[in-house]
């Protein structure tokens, strides 16, 4: 009973959150490796980053100017326009899930 009420309360909070815009092509796959903030894992979180800095990193991975184990191979799969859309969406998601 108490858990039920708690659940409803939690869901109430979720319902009050603004909904992020539809994800652009490729964007949801980044979360396979990049966790939300607060987990302190070896692969850095993308949460809290500005779109500009994500785009700059992706360009550096793509050109090879920034060495990488895997991001070079992934960044090459996205055009400038796609990368920017992903970066904007990732940043907008931060905003949508910010604690009230």
């Amino acid at each position: 009973m108490r858990r039920e009420l708690l659940l409803l309360a939690v869901l109430g909070v979720v319902a009050a959150m603004p909904v992020a815009a539809e994800a652009p092509a490729g964007a949801t796959a980044c979360a396979g490796c990049h966790a939300p903030a607060g987990r302190d894992l070896p692969v850095p979180t993308l949460s809290g980053r500005t779109p500009e800095s994500i785009v700059a990193d992706m360009q550096a991975f793509r050109s090879g100017s920034r060495p990488a184990t895997v991001m070079d191979r992934i960044a090459k799969g996205f055009s400038d326009g796609e990368t920017r859309a992903i970066a904007n969406w990732l940043a907008s998601k931060d905003h949508a899930s910010a604690k009230p």
């Binding site: 539809e22 652009p24 092509a25 490729g26 796959a29 980044c30 396979g32 490796c33 184990t69 895997v70 191979r73 992934i74 090459k76 799969g77 996205f78 796609e82």
Partner: peptide, 25 residues
Amino acid sequence: PAEPKLINTCYSLVAPDYGISIAGV
């Protein structure tokens, strides 16, 4: 529905401290 793009990456361990991967978009 929008045209999607997807990613896959499979990591494999050859030894506990020796990882290799294959990735695709």
